[in-house]
Every structure is written in structure tokens, then in C-alpha cells.
Simulated assay, not measured.
Amino acid sequence: MQQAMNVQRQRLKLFALIAVFALPMLTAWVMVQWRIGIPAQRTAHGELAPDVPVLAEWPLEPRHASLDGGDWILAFDCSRDCRAEADRWWRMHRALGREAPRVSRLRIGGMPEALPGETVTQWRERPEWQQPGGIWLLDPEGRAVLSYAQGVSQRDVFDDLGHLLKRNPDRRAVTELDGERP
């Protein structure tokens, strides 16, 4: 009798151990299959921009070598209310704090004088993907990551840019560290 109870106790322990590892997997499978308990929040406020070509192919004049420095680029079309838009994005750039040197601003159109940290250029011709007042976040290789329509909240762009900078370490700092190794 004692032997039978001991065997049952051992089987119960084995079943409990299997359940500890199997139940989370079963729960995850149910959540994915039936979309139960999965948050529907968005992480990016902008729209993905697969149709926007790389920055080197944009019809801009003049072409600035300062944009090839490996920084993230906040490009914005400044065809309407340019002074206010340029100031708005300059203030957001300053709000990045210690991450600000990793970002360059590219103003397309508007007044010829540039604010600090800004490059000014003009459209040679308006591409079909361009939208008046549009804003684009470009990665260090010049690929458009996100695009925003005119009138987007400054906070939304700030949050997306902060998230991208956090998830993508500064390659210049990594290269410097690699160069210091014996």
C-alpha cells in the first residue's frame, strides 16, 4: 500500500513539473491563435515609408555632403509657414538632449538661412511621394523609416525618434570602443 502511494506521489510530482513548463507554452499558443490578451497598441506614430527612395535619390539641390555623416535625419518639407515649422523642429531637436548630436535636420524649401544644426535645400522637382508639409525620419544610411503628414504632433515624432535612437546604438561610439581594444 505504501509503495502504491509513493508511486502516485512521484507521478503527481512529474505531472506538476511538466505542467509548470507546458502551461506557459499552451497559454502563449492560445493567445496567438485566438488573439486573446494581446495588446493592440501601436509603437510608432508615423507610417512606414517603403515607397520613399533613399536620400541620395531625392531630387534635391544642392546636394550637401553634411548629410552623409551617418546621423539619423529628420527631413521636413517647409512649403507652408516655414519659420514656425523650422522653429518647431529645432526645439524638438534640442529636447533630445545628449542624443541630439546623432540627429541632423534637413529643411526642404522655405527661407534660405538655416537654424543651428540644420541643412537647407530645395526640391529640383516635386516627386510623386512628396506631400506638402511632410516629415520623414531617415536612418543613417538614408533610408526613410517613418513618414508623417503635415500637422503631426511634435510629441509623436519625438517619441518615435527617441525610441529609434534607444534601439539603435551610436555606431561611431561602438567603432571608437572597438579601436581601443588591444
Rank of each mutant, 00 (worst) to 15 (best):
L115P: 00
W89G: 01
T27C: 03
G179T: 03
M5V: 11
D51S: 13
D87P: 00
A84P: 02
D81E: 15
V120W: 13
R124I: 15
T175G: 01
D68Q: 11
G46D: 03
L23F: 10
Q150K: 10
A56P: 07
R35K: 10
V157P: 01
Q10P: 00
C82Q: 04
D159K: 09
P140Q: 04
H93F: 02
L164G: 00
R107S: 07
D159F: 08
P127Q: 07
R167T: 08
M5H: 07
F158H: 12
A65Q: 13
Q3N: 06
A40G: 04
L14V: 14
M1Q: 04
R11N: 06
Y148T: 00
D71A: 14
R88S: 07
W29K: 00
R63V: 13
A75Y: 12
R155K: 11
L60Y: 03
W90R: 12
R171N: 01
G46Q: 06
H64M: 04
D81Y: 13
P169E: 06
F21N: 02
R35H: 15
V174L: 14
A44C: 02
A75Q: 04
P59S: 08
R35W: 09
G97W: 07
L74H: 02
Q2E: 10
R105S: 07
L137I: 15
Q10D: 06
A114Q: 06
Q2W: 14
L106P: 01
D156E: 14
D178W: 10
D139H: 03
H64N: 09
E128R: 11
Q33N: 05
I135N: 00
A173E: 09
A100M: 12
P169Q: 02
M1L: 09
L60R: 02
D87F: 14
P24A: 10
T119C: 03
M1C: 01
Q150R: 13
R143L: 02
E128W: 13
M1Y: 06
L138H: 06
T27S: 09
W136R: 01
D71M: 11
R88H: 14
R171P: 02
H45T: 03
P116Y: 15
L106Q: 01
A4Y: 08
F21C: 08
L106A: 02
Q10H: 06
D71C: 10
R9I: 04
M92C: 10
R98H: 08
A28L: 15
S147N: 09
Q154D: 11
G162C: 10
S66E: 15
R83M: 14
A100V: 03
R80D: 14
D81M: 09
S66I: 01
